[in-house]
Design a protein around this nucleic acid. Structure first.
Length: 490
RNA sequence: GCCCCUAUCGUCUAGUGGCCCAGGACGCCACCCUUUCAAGGUGGAAACGCGGGUUCGAUUCCCGCUGGGGGCACCA
């Protein structure tokens, strides 16, 4: 088995594209076959600088490796189409010599007018075959004289073309629905149609995997393989991915590149897992798989052919699962790296690694995205928290009309904490509960005030653990500061 | 307009003629746990697009319609 991922350098690969790479890679690795990268850059006008590096980066991030490619070469080098021009020329000449193709001198102006007329008449657009009637002698003469021309493949006739797609079975179409399409452009570059056939053949690709959008033109490719005398490969057309709304995947709705997902705090394992099972399933219940496991069980035949909508919520859930299941040291490292990036600059660097390790177990199941971490734990780092306004403290029913009572409770807890002998989560909890009882308040009501005072947040990691990590001194001062803000006089 | 692909809960899917008054997951709702929020546990609502066939019997096979997606470039 030899499979290739053949991106065009037109920007960052989006998720649909990447899923194709994942499936192709999984298929190759499953069968012990080769996986290679080939750059399809025959359109000189659409090149985007840096694309190739971004493509490599996306693949590497996901843990996809390749056996041959532009960067590492291989037995069929070069792996960049713009460096393989002579090969396409040879193939085109062979097609010309065998009568499967002809030179076309029609100008783009004539082509445009023709199309316009066809559409006005309600006909389907397509080349009318004018130059097909030219004698070989005349065509050769005009070309030799330097007249601009393209090479067209003789596709249109009375017959039918049948091909087999691995996922859909046999597909037969009538050739009259096709026109004679261009295989070699006037700039001497091949079109995709010719280039990929020549390359996939020469590179011994066994399974031509690609997006669904190629299905309608697959008959063209089948005809070229035949005309060139090549044995056809197995065609596999992958479904597209739809946006969350079921419409086309667009930049608006998360048609993001995987690199952007990395940026937002998704981990590679989750993204790989999610994309692998989007439109593919192993059985009726399993959804969480490691890369290794997927490699073992992946089968192209289990892909469902209808387009799947990208479910961001499920991806988030899965990312949370990956984060929770990760070994703690690894998670701590991830948090540290992320916090270094996200925490405000006034927090001194390097960040206290021991501190991060201390709170990691308490926030790991509260985080779905790495990008959420900073907002959850910033108070551990700040010298003083931004104390919420009084209305924040008094929003609970118990304290609504009792700022003095709230301040008093805070002071009582501060006194308790200050005098606490044993500094442990259990001791802190016991003492705080005892204090609440002693001042005849409900524990929950008091804890809410403390949470606000110590973390500055309504939603935070568990209180007692948090206090233990924040430390006695800081806790007490934050408690007293909040109390003073609520009721200046004792 | 023409051509191709496709059709199970809101979403991703299992299902390959009877096991299905359709199973799992995300999401949603309720309850439990609980110092907040999560996580976790339990339970619940939620689907075979429509019409014809074929068959003793169709979610499963065939046809049509409708819906969805894609394609009709000297782009890939």
């Amino acid at each position: 088995m030899r499979v290739r991922y053949a991106p065009s350098p037109t920007g960052d690969p989006h998720v649909g594209n990447v899923r194709q790479a994942i499936w192709s890679w999984l298929f190759a690795r499953h069968s012990g076959g080769d996986f290679l990268i080939r750059l399809e850059d025959t359109d000189q006008t659409r090149k985007v600088p840096g694309s190739l590096e971004r493509i490599y980066g996306s693949l590497r991030w996901l843990g996809i490796d390749w056996d041959e490619g532009p960067d590492i070469g291989g037995p069929y080098a070069p792996y960049v189409q713009s460096e393989r021009l002579p090969r396409y020329r040879v193939a085109a000449d062979q097609l010309l010599a065998d009568g499967h193709a002809y030179l076309c001198f029609c100008s783009s102006e004539r082509l445009a007018e023709m199309r316009k007329a066809q559409q006005a008449a309600g006909e389907s657009p397509g080349y009318d075959g004018l130059c097909r009637t030219l004698s070989v002698a005349e065509a050769t003469t005009r070309a030799a004289a330097g007249e601009a021309h393209v090479v067209r493949f003789k596709m249109r006739d009375d017959g039918t073309t049948t091909l087999v797609d691995l996922l859909r079975g046999e597909i037969t179409v009538e050739n009259r629905h096709f026109d004679d399409f261009v295989i070699l452009k006037s700039d001497q570059f091949p079109t995709y149609h010719l280039a990929h056939v020549v390359d996939d053949y020469e590179m011994q690709i066994s399974h031509v995997t690609r997006g669904d959008e190629w299905l309608p033109s697959a008959p063209r490719h089948a005809r070229i393989w035949d005309a060139l005398g090549y044995a056809r490969p197995t065609f596999v057309h992958f479904p597209v991915i739809l946006g969350p709304d079921g419409g086309k995947l667009s930049k608006r709705h998360g048609a993001k590149s995987v690199l952007e997902y990395a940026d937002e705090g998704y981990v590679a394992g989750a993204v790989f897992n999610f994309l692998a099972i989007l439109g593919w399933s192993f059985d009726d219940k399993t959804e969480l798989f490691t890369r290794a496991r997927l490699t073992e069980i992946f089968d192209l035949a289990d892909i469902s052919v209808n387009p799947a909508a990208f479910d961001t919520q499920k991806l988030e859930w899965m990312n949370g699962v990956y984060l929770r299941d990760m070994p703690e040291p690894e998670l701590t490292a991830l948090f540290a790296e992320r916090l270094d990036r996200d925490l405000p600059t006034d927090v001194a660097r390097p960040l206290d690694r021991a501190l991060i390790a201390a709170f990691t177990p308490h926030i790991r199941e509260r985080v779905k995205l790495l990008s959420e971490v900073a907002g959850l734990v910033d108070f551990f780092f700040a010298a003083s928290v931004v104390t919420p306004g009084a209305d924040e403290f008094l929003s609970a029913k118990r304290w609504r009309d009792d700022a003095a009572g709230a301040a008093g409770s805070l002071r009582a807890i501060a006194d308790t904490i200050e005098a606490l002998a044993d500094w442990s989560t259990a001791a802190i909890e016991a003492a705080m509960r005892g204090t609440a009882e002693a001042i005849d308040e409900k524990a929950g009501d008091v804890f809410t005030l403390c949470r606000l005072a110590v973390t500055g947040k309504r939603i935070a990691p568990p209180l007692f653990e948090t206090i233990e990590i924040v430390g006695r001194e800081t806790t007490v001062s934050r408690l007293r500061a909040a109390a003073s803000a609520l009721a200046p006089t004792v």
